[in-house]
C-alpha cells in the first residue's frame, strides 16, 4: 500500500518507446479515472458514508466556520453558505489572476484569502487544512461540468499552450511524455493497473495508496517521479499551467470531488 511506485513505472518503457506523436482523446471518448476502477473502489466513492474523502469535507466545513487571523474572520463571515457561494467555483479554476498576471488554481486562491482577507499565517500546500478547504469548496461543484475558461478569457491562452507543451514533451530519464500514457495508451495495463486518461475531475482525491486526501499537484508529482523527471515545488507555475491544460482537456466533464482512487 505505502510502497513507492518507481520500479513499476519502468515497465512503461516497453509500450511507450517509439510511439507516434500523441493525438488528443476525442471529446466523446473521454472517461473519468472512475470508469477504470474496480467495483469496490467505485462503490467507495459513490457512498458518502464509505468515502473517506467525506471526512475531509467535514474537516473543511469546520475550517470554513472557524474565525482566525488578525482580521478575526471566518470564510463564512464573508462567503456565507458555501453551498450557494462556492457552487460551481471549482469548475471555473484555474482562472486568470489580475494581481500576478497569470492563472491561479483553487488552492492558491483559498491560500490567498487566508493570508490577505483573514490576515492569518499562510497554509502550506498539501497541509491538512488547505486540502480540506479545497475539498470542501470543490465538493460544492460535484456533478457540475468543468467550464472552458480559456474560451471565456483569452488571457489564459498562452498558459494553456504552456501546459499543453509540458503534457506533450518527452521528459525524464525514461524519455516519456504524459501524452504517451494518457492519450495514446489509456485503457491499457501498466503492471496490472489500468492507465486512465488523466482527467483532474475528482480532485482533491482520497487515494488508497496515500491513505489520505491529496491535491492534483500531489498526483502530478507522482506521475513526474514515475517518469524519473524533475518535479516542481508545490504551487509552482508549471503545475498551475498543467492544471489549466488538464481542466481544459476535461471541459464539460463532471466534477466528482471527493474522488477515490487506488
Amino acid at each position: 500500500m505505502r510502497a513507492a511506485r518507481g520500479p513499476v513505472l519502468a515497465a512503461a518503457f516497453l509500450f511507450a518507446a517509439g510511439a507516434a506523436p500523441a493525438a488528443e482523446v476525442p471529446l466523446p471518448e473521454r472517461r473519468s479515472g472512475y470508469d477504470f476502477m474496480g467495483p469496490q473502489t467505485r462503490g467507495m466513492q459513490d457512498d458518502d458514508m464509505a468515502n473517506p474523502g467525506m471526512l475531509s469535507v467535514l474537516d473543511g466545513a469546520a475550517a470554513w466556520e472557524r474565525k482566525t487571523g488578525a482580521a478575526g474572520k471566518a470564510c463564512a463571515d464573508c462567503h456565507r453558505d458555501a453551498r450557494q457561494s462556492m457552487k460551481g467555483v471549482a469548475a471555473r479554476y484555474p482562472r486568470f489572476d489580475e494581481a500576478t498576471g497569470r492563472p491561479i488554481d483553487l488552492e492558491g486562491r483559498i491560500a490567498r484569502c487566508r493570508t490577505e482577507r483573514q490576515q492569518a499565517p499562510p497554509l502550506a500546500r498539501e497541509s491538512r487544512e488547505l486540502v480540506a478547504l479545497a475539498v470542501y469548496v470543490a465538493h460544492q461543484s460535484r456533478g457540475l461540468p468543468v467550464e472552458d475558461m480559456v474560451e471565456k478569457d483569452a488571457r489564459l491562452r498562452p498558459f494553456l499552450e504552456a501546459g499543453r507543451s509540458q503534457f506533450e514533451r518527452r521528459q525524464g530519464q525514461l524519455d516519456l511524455s504524459c501524452a504517451q500514457c494518457h492519450n495514446d495508451n489509456w485503457g491499457k495495463s501498466l503492471a496490472g493497473n489500468p492507465v486512465p486518461q488523466g482527467h483532474p475531475t475528482g480532485y482533491p482525491i482520497y487515494r488508497l495508496e496515500w491513505q489520505s486526501v491529496g491535491s492534483l499537484q500531489r498526483r502530478l508529482r507522482n506521475c513526474l517521479i514515475g517518469m524519473r523527471a524533475e518535479s516542481y515545488e508545490f504551487g509552482a507555475p508549471e503545475y498551475v499551467d498543467l492544471t489549466l491544460y488538464l481542466m481544459w482537456r476535461a471541459r464539460g466533464m463532471k466534477i466528482e470531488t471527493p474522488g477515490v482512487r487506488p
Binding site: 458514508m49 471526512l55 469546520a62 480540506a132
Partner: peptide, 9 residues
Amino acid sequence: MTAQALIHV
C-alpha cells in the same frame, strides 16, 4: 483539528 466521524444508523 478534532477527529471527524461518519456514522450511519
